[in-house]
C-alpha cells in the first residue's frame, strides 16, 4: 500500500463543506460540536449559512428539515450517537418520511472514538439509518472519498447519512473521479475470498489481503462505501468468483454491513460468510487503536476470518 498520509474523515468533511461553499447553495447546522465535527471549517468561510442549534439534536434535525423544505439542502452534524440515536424520531419522521434534502453528517462513529467510552461510541447507526426508506447510507474509507461523498450528497436529491470518524485514517485514494453512491470500489482482485469493507476497516482489509498474499492466499477487496443502496451486482459478482465473503465494519454485526451483505447473499447467492465487527457488545474507553484491537477490529482479525471462510468453503 502506497503511503498517502493520514486524515480523519471528519477533517475531510469540514474542508469539503468549505471548499464547496461557493459552488453550491446549502446550509450547515451543528449542535455545539462544530469544532469536533469540523463544521467550524465551513463556518469560518461561510458564517452566514451556518446555524448553531445548541445542544438540542432532535430540534436540529427538525430545523434542518424545515430549511430543506424551502428548497435549500441542509447538512446537519453532530456525533453519531446523537444524530442517529437521540434524534432518531426527528430523522425518521421529519426527514426520512417526507424525503427531504437533508444530509446528516455524523462524526465520532464506532469505537475508534476511543477514550470517551461506550456512551459516545455509536455502533448501531448504520442499522438505524439503513432501516429508513429512501435514506442513503455512506461510510467513506478515507479523506478523499469523504470529499467525493459530500459532493455526491449535494448532487443527490434526498436524505443522506454520512458516517464519519474521529480517528485519522490512511488515505487510500488518489483519483476518485468515478465515485458514486451505490457503486462499490474494487480495490484488489483475488480468487480465494472477497473482503467487503466500509470506513476505517477498508485500510485494514487491504493490509489483511497483502499479508494473506504473502502466504499465497489471493483475496479481493471491495470498498463498499455505500451500505445503502448496496452494490449488489459487485457483491454477487465477487461472491461467485471467490465463493467466500468476509465483511469488515466498525459497527455491530447486527444490522450493519455484514447484515446487508448476508441479506443479499441469502436471497440471491448463498455463499460462505464471516462477519468482522462488534459482536453484540457496547464499546468501552481506551486509546482508539487499543479499543479497536480489544474488539477484534484489526487486519489480523480480518485475516483470520478469511482463513475461516476459506476453510468452510471446502466443507460445503
Amino acid at each position: 500500500m502506497k503511503d498517502l498520509g493520514k486524515l480523519a474523515t471528519r477533517d475531510a468533511y469540514g474542508q469539503a463543506l468549505a471548499d464547496l461553499a461557493t459552488q453550491y447553495d446549502f446550509v450547515v447546522l451543528d449542535a455545539d460540536l462544530s469544532k469536533s465535527t469540523k463544521t467550524a471549517t465551513f463556518r469560518k468561510v461561510c458564517p452566514e449559512r451556518f446555524v448553531n442549534c445548541g445542544i438540542a439534536e432532535g430540534n436540529m434535525m427538525g430545523v434542518a428539515a424545515g430549511i430543506a423544505s424551502t428548497g435549500r439542502p441542509a447538512f446537519a452534524s453532530t456525533f453519531a450517537m446523537f444524530a442517529a440515536g437521540r434524534a432518531y424520531d426527528s430523522v425518521r419522521n421529519g426527514i426520512g418520511y417526507p424525503h427531504l434534502n437533508v444530509k446528516i453528517a455524523a462524526t465520532h462513529t464506532g469505537i475508534s472514538v476511543g477514550e470517551d467510552g461506550a456512551t459516545h461510541q455509536c455502533i448501531e447507526d448504520i442499522a438505524l439509518m439503513r432501516a429508513i426508506p429512501g435514506m442513503v447510507v455512506c461510510c467513506p474509507a478515507d479523506g478523499p472519498s469523504t470529499a467525493a461523498a459530500v459532493r455526491c450528497a449535494l448532487e443527490h436529491d434526498g436524505p443522506v447519512y454520512l458516517r464519519l470518524g474521529r480517528l485519522a485514517v490512511p488515505t487510500l485514494y488518489e483519483d476518485l473521479s468515478g465515485f458514486a453512491f451505490g457503486k462499490g470500489i474494487l480495490l484488489r482482485e483475488g480468487s480465494d475470498a472477497v473482503i467487503v469493507a466500509v470506513g476505517l476497516m477498508t485500510a485494514r482489509a487491504l493490509a489483511a489481503a497483502e499479508s494473506l498474499a504473502e502466504k499465497g492466499i489471493q483475496v479481493a477487496v471491495i470498498d463498499m462505501h455505500t451500505v445503502k443502496p448496496l452494490d449488489e451486482a459487485l457483491l454477487l459478482e465477487w461472491a461467485e468468483k471467490t465463493g467466500a465473503v468476509v465483511t469488515a465494519e466498525e459497527h455491530t454485526i447486527l444490522g450493519g454491513l455484514g447484515s446487508a451483505v448476508a441479506e443479499c447473499l441469502g436471497e440471491h447467492r448463498p455463499t460462505v460468510l464471516q462477519r468482522v465487527g462488534v459482536r453484540d457488545l457496547f464499546g468501552s474507553s481506551g486509546k482508539a487503536e487499543e479499543v479497536l484491537t480489544a474488539y477484534g477490529l484489526t487486519a489480523q482479525a480480518i485475516e483470520e476470518a478469511v482463513c475461516t471462510a476459506i476453510a468452510r468453503k471446502s466443507l460445503r
Binding site: V27, N59, G62, A64, A65, G66, S90, N93, G94
Partner: peptide, 18 residues
Amino acid sequence: SLGLGISAACGMAKAAKL
C-alpha cells in the same frame, strides 16, 4: 410525532431569515 412540527416551523422561519 408530537414536538417535531415546531422544529420544522423554526427551520422554515430561519430559512426565511437566512
